[in-house]
Design a binder for these strands. Structure first.
Lengths: 217, 217, 217, 217
DNA sequence: ACTGCCGGGACGTCCCGTTCGT
DNA sequence: ACGAACGGGACGTCCCGGCAGT
């Protein structure tokens, strides 16, 4: 029995969708209120300012990413952990992509680099290092781990922006995310040993099966 | 003896810089006027609407990219052509990155995918195919050209956004572009034969030397 | 006990007064807001654009004129009906005279002749014809009904403009309207039989007594 | 051999036409410059402010009306003088109708009633009195000269406005003016003796023939 | 005499943050 | 919790008066 979501929840969902589709500053509080089916003034009751909404969504994203990190290390093997981490991360970054895309519109007083973003980069770097330690990488090809990490990060991070820019899509679907994962792995693959390739590919298929679910609309 | 640039030019430069740094909708006509050293109401004389400024900058970018394509195929060898094309493209995309980043704020009536963007993707695809034809790629590694192209495209396209997001930089320098090229080539390199690797690396060094110059900052 | 009128009402009244006195384009939204005793930006809440205010006032006028037509034919004799129709019409046209006077400033996309205006002309023509049918007109003077109607229409229609132009008056009072009626009847009178003259004059006195009331401020 | 009119002349003509068609405040100096085929800034050379243009046109109108008065009393008979005066007056008022229509937009500091307007009324009153003195009016109908004068004035004065409002016409033609004269005389006619009627009608035909010419387009 | 360009300012639109009554 | 209404302010548009250069 699905209950009618709370007003606060409806505001956040409407805001997230609109921010993703139109950008932060092009979205008015009234539009959010309309989409949530309530009166403009009532948004104020739940969130005093427009940035309060952003902050709440940012917090949701941060929490989701933190949760992922916890889940990630639940005793599965490394390939699975890596793939799961990337896929879940892409999903969250897709759902909340405006947080990163419009970061410079939030009138950040100081030029704070987004904490979640940085943490995410670190997580990826840690996983790549463990891949190296567990000898996933070919010996015949000298790899610059730092550079590779960054390239992998970029592909994962900007994939949803790319889909939106390039294909004119407003909503990023689960299929889009899966395609993004394949691209990501495509960048990683040539560096891997044959065995590692198989392990990663198998893990990817497994993760895609396991995680398949609708994006939060 | 450098002459004082025309007012129209000063408006465009100021606008480009501000749009890049703060985003389109966070930038005020008055800010542009101040940066250009003229009265705010006077901007109107040169550009009737704010989007007229964007259109003019878009046209500049399109022209620059078209010019690059012409230059690109001037009888040099393929490695050089590839590297030059990517590097020059990154430079232009860095200088005008707001055009792509804020595309969805320009109230495009229809969801037109930016023509320049698409053309750019095609150019890259063509070059990658020629790399394949001229046997730059290793035979022992099956490569999906379409997928690789897209990954390469993403790294080049979003590199400047990444630098700005991740390092809080407002101006993208020549050094940033060079770093971007290296990342781009890092994605390409594992697929290449040893000979191709050397050819590309040499071409990269050459192009970097040749093109080194200040961004139009 | 007079209640405080709604804000929307106050805006409309203030706008009507100012439009009449200064003309449409010389009247500022801020002036209207001041006159209505509210903040200027708040007018927007009730009327999105300036022409929305005009449209609302036009609708009021149209409704008033329609109502008059209904009232006009309530079983009184023809003389009374004629006089009442003209007097009430003049009152409304005086109260909303800017609607007609400034019509060409409303940037009407097409050159639509004002519907209310045309309807008004038709109403007058119908009444004049009935005067003819009921033998109000002298037999010894050949009368061009169409021409006479138009002259009568002009005197009634532009009377309030004339008072404003010629006497520098901003508000048209009830007395002004009464004077206008007399002028109007002065144009009609020479064409009438002696009996008709008396009937019209008596009806005029009756109507003036009956309708005497303050203009809507 | 028609010479090219002076720039000053072209500005005045363009301004008059535009003011008549769109109203004073809806007409910009740039529109006038465009219509005159010169640069915006050049209008300033001839007329420092927008109201200077209006003042010049007002002066033209005043001069034309004064001239008419002189012409009017050139030894012709009274009927001819009356008709000529009205017709020429209507022509001028049609050509310069914005002067009267938009009078309240010129931001007249004091509520000066337009001098030309008042003078015109006086001229008409004088003529009507002379009609009375020379026994044009029927004896059997008591006539209020003052009231009649005003009605005649209104029909003549607002005729061109009426044509524009009611028929959506931007330019008032000579035929329109002739129609206006007939309406005007229609108001006068019932008060006249049979002989006077003939005299006035004959004079009207004569004047129409004599004065037929293109309006200053 | 004429043009291109400019400075300053006003207005309409639009939105955010807020209050009050229910 | 919620909705109607409100105050204040900012931005883009638009225009007028004015000047430097030819």
């Amino acid at each position: 029995m699905t209950e009618r979501p709370t007003t606060r929840r409806r505001i956040l969902d409407a805001a997230r969708r609109l921010f993703n589709a139109q950008g932060y500053s092009e979205t008015t509080i009234s539009q959010i209120a309309d989409a949530a089916g309530i009166a403009h003034g009532n948004v104020w009751y739940h969130f005093r300012t427009k940035t309060d909404i952003v902050d709440a969504l940012k917090a949701e994203l941060a929490e989701a990413l933190a949760e992922r990190r916890a889940i990630g290390s639940q005793g599965r093997d490394l390939a699975d952990e890596y793939v799961t981490s990337v896929l879940v991360g892409m999903q969250h970054q897709g759902d909340y992509r405006f947080v990163l895309r419009d970061a410079l519109q939030f009138r950040s007083d100081e030029k704070e680099i987004d904490a979640a973003l940085a943490e995410d980069h670190r997580t990826l770097r840690r996983l790549v290092r463990r891949l190296d330690e567990e000898e996933f990488f070919r010996r015949d090809l000298p790899v610059d781990l730092e550079e590779l990490t960054r390239s992998l990060f970029i592909v994962a991070r900007y994939w949803s922006d790319h889909v939106q820019d390039h294909e004119g899509r407003d909503e990023i679907t689960w299929d889009d995310q899966v395609r993004g994962l394949r691209h990501h792995l495509g960048v990683l693959r040539p560096w891997l040993t044959a065995a590692a390739r198989r392990a990663i590919d198998d893990a990817a298929e497994g993760a895609i099966q396991r995680l398949a679910r609708a994006s939060p609309a």
